[in-house]
Amino acid sequence: MNIVICTKRDLAGALVLNHLMPHLAEDRVMVLLSDKTRPAEKAQPELAEMKFLERELPVDVLFPLIDRLGGNGDAPLATFAGLQKRYGISFHTLSDINAPEAQTLLGDFAPDVVLSVRFSLIFKRPALDIARLGTWNVHPGALPRYAGLFAPFRALVDGQDRIGCTLHRIDDGIDTGPVAGIGWLPVQRERSLLWHVVNTYGPGLELFLSMLSDMRRDRVPELSAQDRTQRQYLSMPDAAQFAAFHQQGLRLSDREEYLEIVAGFLAPGQTMPTAVHEALDAVEAGTLGAAAPVEKVGAPCCCARA
């Protein structure tokens, strides 16, 4: 099959690709990456911290350092450049999936399936119709209730004992398409929000791989329409919502959890760069906003811009 995977150029996006690619060895794969950010991410300290840990620290600091040291061919997880080398896949970074050049890129690739995971760019027609077997989304929340942004955060604040990850076909709305299934991640309230965010996608990715296996056998997935009366679409949390989060004893991040996650990108014998520890010191000290704790590390980009 020709498969297009659309995701974000951040830590969770790299983890998504590492999850999927070992199962797509017989397929022709193209990856489209989004760098989209939102102004609100700088307006709220908690959002700035999450952005730093999810994007700036791994993509601007850790991954380039690993790549400059010769890559991570023996590591359990690969950086974006490492994924390109390991699997021979092509990467393209986009700012508008509906732009003519993006549609040409998709059309020339002739995808059977397009999968969007954490992509942040909204598909519109005709881009939505290019894939022969549909354009699909893995959404980190149980639809229809947890539509929109920061769904794992909302589930934690609501006291849910599990977080849903929904596989659905994309339609003309946002998080409104018919549902193929919901996978579930048990909540561990002693764990951080960031841990839940990066782990929520796994159950949804497994649903996609199962659906893909059925498609290879010409089996049409069974879909269920969403009950729109149960829909709650929300954007990024504000100060009051973060106050409620903290009042429940919940944490945005945890140093040891974070180091455990990113250690997977290190090859045997490699040690965590000092710059990462210094950055986490700044996070713990609450000094991220006072000054940039780390500088970007220059490295050749693996991603062509369409």
Rank of each mutant, 00 (worst) to 15 (best):
M1F: 06
N2Y: 05
V4Y: 01
V4P: 01
T7D: 02
K8E: 08
R9H: 10
A14Q: 00
A14G: 04
V16K: 00
V16S: 01
N18Q: 07
N18Y: 04
M21I: 08
M21L: 14
A25Y: 14
E26I: 09
R28I: 05
D35Q: 12
K36N: 11
K36F: 11
E41G: 03
K42Q: 11
K42I: 10
P45G: 03
E46H: 09
L47Q: 07
A48C: 09
L57V: 07
P58V: 06
V59M: 14
P64W: 15
L65P: 00
L65E: 08
R68S: 10
L69I: 05
G71Q: 09
G71N: 05
D74C: 15
A75V: 05
P76L: 14
A81K: 02
G82V: 00
G82F: 04
Q84Y: 06
K85C: 05
Y87R: 05
Y87Q: 04
S95E: 14
A99Q: 06
A102W: 07
T104L: 14
L106K: 01
L106D: 01
G107P: 00
F109W: 02
A110E: 10
V114M: 06
S116N: 03
F119R: 00
F123W: 07
K124L: 15
P126C: 14
P126R: 08
D129Q: 10
N137S: 06
P152H: 10
P152I: 04
R154A: 04
R154Q: 09
A155Q: 08
L156M: 09
L156N: 02
V157S: 10
G159K: 07
Q160N: 13
Q160T: 03
G164M: 05
G164C: 07
C165S: 02
C165L: 07
T166E: 02
H168R: 06
D172R: 13
D172P: 04
D172E: 14
D172G: 08
T176A: 12
G177E: 05
P178E: 14
P178H: 11
V179Y: 01
G181I: 03
G183N: 03
P186V: 13
Q188S: 09
S192G: 06
L194S: 02
H196Q: 04
V197Q: 00
V197W: 01
V197L: 06
V198Q: 03
Y201G: 00
P203A: 02
L205K: 02
F208E: 00
S210D: 11
S210F: 10
L212M: 12
R217Y: 12
D218P: 04
P221W: 06
P221Q: 12
A225D: 11
A225E: 13
Q232S: 13
Y233I: 05
L234P: 03
M236V: 13
A239H: 13
A239I: 12
A239G: 08
A240D: 15
A240I: 13
Q241F: 07
A244S: 15
H246R: 15
H246E: 12
Q247R: 13
G249N: 12
L250Y: 09
S253C: 09
S253N: 12
L259F: 14
E260N: 10
I261N: 01
F265Q: 02
Q270P: 03
P273N: 15
V276R: 02
V276H: 05
H277W: 15
L280T: 01
A285D: 08
L288Q: 03
A290H: 10
A291T: 09
A291W: 14
A292K: 15
A292G: 11
A292C: 12
P293Q: 14
E295G: 13
K296E: 08
P300S: 11
C301E: 13
A304C: 11
